[in-house]
Design a protein around this nucleic acid. Structure first.
Lengths: 117, 117
DNA sequence: TTGACATATTCCCATATAGGCATGTATTTT
DNA sequence: AAAATACATGCCTATATGGGAATATGTCAA
């Protein structure tokens, strides 16, 4: 088989840098496509295509307003990604603690008679 | 241009379901390739290729032990993904609050004389 | 109705996989 | 040294884009 469709889930949709940029730009505020085009510096059709992917995955919501379409990030759809990564949090905390402990042990060793240079 | 290389960053590496499965399996414990093959139900070459991607991105660490190679998840490399998604947390919290507030308002309306059916 | 404006779609091309299969390589056992 | 074991790589194919260019669609203005 070939590569999986990006259109199917938030993990794939968010893997594209441009789409992350768009989601960040649309977090908290509605924007029309033209504004997004300026913000990300891609041509309009490309932006529309990225918005299409995000829309199908549910990462953005659209609302019509006359000739414009107002997009905004649907943060809730990003949550599954956040939660998956969160399951690893305790492991990196563990790593950080080990680094910290080593640093402290080193600190103690230096203080109690190590060479001062 | 075509699709970006998955080999370049954690977002893309993690977009592949099989690789997420492997990372979860390797979180906290070292495992040899054969065990991973059994766990994910793919053939050995495919697993090795996924491990190769994860290794290049830094999502796993390897250690040799005789004929075996022991892999383990490097949780710290997942952190950037966690942090990116975290920037949206306040927005979905906001959404949840709105839902909750509407529910409470509805609750009050029902209590103060609405039809009981 | 005719235009102008804002977006979405379609078509085409180059490229990057994900798997399946075969083969290469390092390490241990006999 | 030869055979076996455990992985990593290389090769080939079908498929899914991402971007550019052209075109279709929908809406408001004159």
């Amino acid at each position: 088989m070939a590569r999986a469709a990006t259109t199917s889930d938030p993990f794939n949709a968010v893997a594209e840098p441009r789409r992350r940029q768009i989601l960040t730009f649309l977090a908290g505020n509605e924007r029309q496509v033209g504004e997004i085009v300026v913000a990300v510096g891609l041509d309009q059709p490309s932006v529309s295509k990225h918005l299409g992917v995000l829309r199908r995955v549910g990462l953005v919501h659209v609302r019509r307003n006359g000739r414009h379409r107002l997009y905004r990030t649907n943060a809730a759809a990003i949550r599954p990604v956040h939660e998956w990564t969160e399951t690893f949090e305790r492991y990196w905390q563990h790593q950080l603690n080990r680094v910290k402990e080593r640093a402290e042990a080193q600190e103690i060793r230096s203080r109690s008679g190590g060479p001062s240079s």
